[in-house]
Amino acid sequence: MDGEGGVIKKFLYVNRKAPYGTIYALESLEVVLIGAAFEQDVSLVFIDDGVYQLKKGQQTTVDSGIGVKDFSKTYRALEGYDVEKLYVDKKSMEMRGLSTSDLNVDVEVLDDAQMADLMAQQDIILSF
């Protein structure tokens, strides 16, 4: 499954939903992890409420919590899966009063034009 003889394609995962209210964020992350086995050129972008997926300090499993898995920790495992290109939308961050120091992984901040360019460069876009 390592892309042997195959062409490496550029895959972009677009994440636009907050983490726990709907299943989108978790589903996206699971597809990213499974897809990592195919060793393609993967990027993740976080736009709109999607930036909240990366917020530091999420507490979900403590006795008083909402009682689901804190999958924000899993984004930190992506590097080990060779998924290293994570981007956030500048305006979405600003609108929410967030800076990169509020996030639990290293990301690159893209402005409108840079984000549009990144999308235009992809072979496959998976939207969540």
Partner: peptide, 11 residues
Amino acid sequence: NSLESCLRLSK
């Protein structure tokens, strides 16, 4: 805001 973000981030 899907349409708004779409128009903002498309070429």
